[in-house]
Design a protein around this nucleic acid. Structure first.
Lengths: 112, 112
DNA sequence: TAAAACTTGTCAATAATTGACAAAATTAAA
DNA sequence: TTTAATTTTGTCAATTATTGACAAGTTTTA
């Protein structure tokens, strides 16, 4: 397993024999900044997930799994959260789905 | 279950018969802003989790479960992430723990 | 109906993220 | 080796997001 999403991208990129510049172009990103992302010095912005999926012909859902799984894990690790946290997250997301909360009602929804 | 962390705070607060002003003071927060937090119009800042635990004599770990569980759920809901995301998160956090990544190595670690 | 409690709106101040570029370091090719 | 390509690192202004603060409104309660 790759520890970070950055390493995951790097893997994809090198497997396909792309240079940073080439991939960065597809992601509408500076190659220097892509390098930082790959090396965990910057975050990959979620607004580029779709472009990333396109670049490598990946399933967007699978990419979300990798991306957010990584985000959550880092948070958990940084804040030393009990594993239970993820169970509660699951309950809550089911609850949200079941109540079908309107867009914009939750603060998070405002994000792009 | 409470849908949001804000509602959870409100519950705690009203159960204890505190006013917004009283709790806000303990959290070093403006009462108007606490109101927004309770109503999901603002995020509760993680740096105040400890104060919140103190105010209600709660276990900090349990609070983290509620807080981050809520955060993750909202993200998942907003971005329509597959449930699988949480499994991957669990794997990854275990991986991080097992490799005992040094502080500061991960971008996230820089946060307070 | 007056006071207390709560909510909402706004905005400047602060903080975080981003894009951009230069320059170093590393790697690959000739 | 030299040279070119690639990658990494550092920096910083610009953009964007979050926060604290306060005023003004509404709702609740005594």
């Amino acid at each position: 397993m790759k520890a970070t999403f950055g390493e995951y991208i790097k893997q994809l990129r090198t497997d396909k024999g792309l240079t940073l510049t080439q991939l960065a172009f597809q992601l509408d990103l500076d190659s220097a900044n892509l390098s930082k992302i790959e090396n965990g010095k910057r975050e990959f912005d979620e607004k580029r997930l779709e472009k990333l999926a396109n670049a490598f012909n990946l399933d967007l859902d699978q990419l979300k799994v990798e991306y957010f799984g990584d985000q959550f894990a880092k948070k958990m690790y940084a804040y030393n959260c009990p594993t239970e946290t993820l169970m509660v997250a699951e309950e809550k997301v089911n609850y949200l789905k079941s109540t079908n909360v309107k867009q914009g009602q939750l603060k998070f929804e405002n994000e792009k």
